[in-house]
């Protein structure tokens, strides 16, 4: 009785009050993760959110999924609601990389760790524990490899760009660097004749491609920085009756993009893995709560997806 060990107890604050727990019990209070993605209208972010929810469940945690829908103020409100709910961690795809600072500071002040997925914070203030995203620079290089392969190493190409997004700037940079390297080292003779804004959207990319075809009737290939842009280019080519004559390389690997690759309308895509990004984002949270090291940045490589892959893909009927 006098052994001090017998008196050694753990008071895990008042928080434990909700639940009848002992130190090693299985029914521990469930950690809650607040998630705000960029938009749920894009299947990429839907997949990302779904994979986070699934991975969290596997670790006995629950998620609250919201979407900022490109509105930085709305996203800030969602984070304020997370803070009221006292979530244990927050995952953001910032709607505005530079304006996300005040939102981060709010969460930091409440002692809630913030993680980012797909889009990084470029704000001067606010702490982010860990960031997970596609290796967009490497993906851009793969896109160049695919387009060179599709054109047999020579021709005129254009880029459907969207420089408003940091991720896209990296893709375009990777594309141009790989092309320049192959020109220097492997005698490839491909020339970029135009870089036009396609708004990362189908409608604007279609119009841009129509204009491209007028300005450069001898165009051989297009690098579209995401699947909606690539599909917009496909629509313009079909309308002009030049389907298949201009090779298109997209980016993403959305279901609609993959179907177009299977149909031969898009040559190939460096595909992203939103499910991997989501899983690692959640694993980062698990590590953080357990007091383990979390890497500041994790880049998930892309993979080239051609017609042969599409033909074998069980998700495409």
């Amino acid at each position: 009785m006098n052994d001090p060990l017998s008196r050694r107890r753990l008071i895990l604050g008042l928080a434990a009050s909700l639940f009848t727990t002992t130190l090693c019990a299985a029914d521990k209070p469930k950690a809650v993760i607040g998630i705000s993605v960029l938009t749920l209208a894009n299947p990429f972010f839907k997949d990302l959110a779904d994979s986070m929810t699934a991975e969290a469940k596997a670790h006995g945690m629950t998620t609250i999924v919201t979407s900022g829908e490109f509105d930085a103020a709305k996203q800030q409100n969602q984070v304020a609601d997370f803070i009221v709910r006292k979530v244990d961690a927050i995952v953001l795809c910032p709607c505005d990389s530079k304006a996300v600072g005040t939102t981060l500071v709010q969460a930091n002040k409440a002692g809630i760790p913030v993680f980012t997925a797909d889009i990084a914070s470029l704000a001067k203030e606010g702490k982010v524990v860990g960031h997970v995203a596609t290796d967009n620079f490497g993906g851009g290089k793969l896109a160049a490899v695919a387009l060179i392969e599709a054109l047999g190493g020579k021709g005129k190409v254009a880029i459907l760009d969207h420089p408003e997004a940091e991720s896209v700037i990296l893709r375009t940079k990777g594309f141009n660097e790989e092309l320049a390297r192959q020109k220097r080292e492997k005698g490839v003779s491909i020339e970029v004749v135009a870089t036009l804004p396609g708004g990362a959207a189908k409608d604007r990319s279609m119009k841009a491609t129509e204009d491209l075809l007028q300005a450069h009737p001898d165009l051989n290939g297009i690098f579209a920085i995401n699947d909606p842009s690539a599909l917009g280019a496909v629509a313009a080519l079909e309308k002009a009756g030049r389907s298949g004559q201009v090779k298109i390389v997209g980016f993403d690997g959305m279901p609609e993009g993959k179907a177009a690759i299977k149909a031969g309308k898009i040559y190939a895509d460096p595909i992203q893995f939103p499910d991997r990004i989501g899983q690692i984002a959640i694993q980062n949270i698990v590590k953080y709560l357990a007091g383990d090291d979390v890497s500041k940045e994790t880049l998930i490589p892309t993979q080239l997806y051609r017609k042969a892959d599409a033909d074998k893909d069980p998700t495409l009927k």
Binding site: P4, R8, L10, I11, L12, A15, L23, K86, D88, A290
Partner: peptide, 30 residues
């Protein structure tokens, strides 16, 4: 003899390993 943690730390799994990290707390009770 005692470890006290704030309510916000309820889900910090780092405390699950408490007994590993501080063996003296093996008989800790909540």
């Amino acid at each position: 003899d005692q470890v006290v943690a704030a309510p916000e730390c309820a889900n910090w799994t780092v405390f699950d390993k408490l007994t590993e990290d501080l063996p003296g707390l093996a008989s800790a009770k909540l």
